[in-house]
Amino acid sequence: MKENQYQLIATAAFGLEAIVAKEVRDLGYENVEVENGKVMFQADAAGIARANLWLRSADRVKWQVGQFRATSFDELFEQTKALPWGEILPRNAEFPVIGKSVKSQLFSVSDCQAIVKKAIVEKMKMKFGMPWFPEDGPLYRIEVSLLKDIATLSIDTSGDGLHKRGYRQLHNEAPLKETMAAALIQLTNWRPDRPFHDPFCGSGTIPIEAALIGQNIAPGFNRNFISQTWRNFPKEIWDQALEEAEDLARYDQPLEIMGTDIDRDTIELANHNAQEAGFADLIKFKQVAVADLRTDLTYGYLVGNPPYGERLKDVETARMIYRQLAATYERSFPTWSLYIFTADEEFEEIFGKPATKKRKLYNGRIRCDYYQYYGPRPPRDQDGGNNNEARI
């Protein structure tokens, strides 16, 4: 690894790793490795700021301090102690240790956490010559993760999960995470010059994420990150990353984005959240049932997360909505592409038409499918690209 380079881990929901890897590469970072639930890459200190600001579909960004094989507590202690904690943590750092263990001989997570904590304290005693540490300063949340006897020690650089953009203070009972909403959009090839409509908008997450993408606004621009409090990363690094994000934003990009829902209260939530995100005059929210949807626009994108049995506690009600969606799509949106995210494995049968393509994803612990129905290609004079799925 080059000097002043950090080994970073962008964690991701299962099924979204390839999307996160593409986002990392789009930021200019190479040597990207993908494993289940995470994407590893190398970056300088500025990369920590840029990754936190720009990754739309990742859960959080971690700094990997060390990785080694450990099959005994002695090995875990000695190899943890050998890492440069005194160069990383200030003497007043608050450094709780969390952990997990999968298919490893060291299966007691609480014991592993205690061993790692003790090893770090011993290393810091050597560095600072102090018998104890007050832990009343900046927070460094350390994780020891054991997988098949390989221990990975990392520090969370994000703080709150990256799905917390700062705009959604209010939400409905079953909100879709902002990171998943962004991923659903990125799995289409929607462009800002095309209409975009969420027919099940709920609290507005998918339309708001579409607006952020359409105007190339960094999703983390209006929030703070725990690593901003660390001495390791001077304020100038964050200032430069924020300035870059401001320069790259396209606030004057016109967008045709709409969200509709049958429930009046959720439309009020959506309008509130759009206002918090700065899109009050840009996104149109309206109370409309799926069966009543109409449009004069063409070659747009319908992207939605409809209610399903897990959420409604009533599978048949959900399936009635799917039938209404099928009739509406055929009648009023013949040139549009349709993307539906649901846990109902019989969606295609109820909808009455097989998807062009479907992709398995997880909404929390719920297995879902993303059903993709490609619309016809726009005339050549209306389209600068193709109408196939984004290749991720």
Rank of each mutant, 00 (worst) to 15 (best):
A327L: 06
K22Q: 13
A249D: 01
T317H: 14
V290M: 09
E316R: 02
A114N: 01
T298L: 11
P96F: 02
L212S: 12
Y374T: 07
K313W: 06
L302P: 07
G352V: 09
R60S: 00
D369T: 10
A93P: 13
K235T: 15
F279L: 06
T71G: 05
K81C: 15
G220S: 13
M40K: 09
Q105Y: 08
W54H: 11
S108A: 07
Q67H: 07
K81V: 14
S108I: 13
W238N: 11
N92S: 11
E78S: 03
R391Y: 08
C368I: 13
H197M: 13
I350Q: 13
L89E: 07
A174K: 02
Q372W: 08
Y374S: 09
F233C: 15
M1Q: 02
P131F: 04
P175Q: 10
E3M: 05
G214A: 08
V61L: 01
A249E: 03
A270T: 12
W230N: 14
M320K: 12
R69S: 10
Q228S: 07
L297G: 05
R191V: 14
S110E: 15
R25V: 10
R367A: 09
Y322A: 03
D156Q: 05
W54A: 06
G384N: 03
F347M: 04
K148T: 14
S203K: 00
L89H: 01
V102N: 01
I350K: 09
N388W: 15
A10Q: 12
P138W: 04
K357W: 08
G159E: 08
N31A: 13
T317Y: 10
N387S: 09
K235P: 10
Q79D: 07
E256D: 14
R359M: 03
D314M: 01
S158G: 09
Q186R: 14
E243S: 04
F225G: 15
E236R: 15
F200R: 05
E33G: 07
P134N: 03
G129A: 04
E75A: 08
R194P: 12
E389C: 12
L16T: 00
R264Q: 14
I19L: 12
D344F: 11
C112M: 07
A58V: 00
A343D: 10
D369C: 03
R25Y: 05
L338Y: 13
D74G: 06
N271H: 04
E135V: 04
Q5L: 06
A181N: 00
I88R: 04
A21R: 12
L282Y: 04
A318F: 02
L27F: 12
D381W: 05
Y299C: 05
N232G: 04
G37A: 06
D74T: 02
I213R: 01
P96W: 03
K177S: 00
I262E: 14
A119G: 02
N224L: 04
D198Y: 01
V97C: 05
V39N: 14
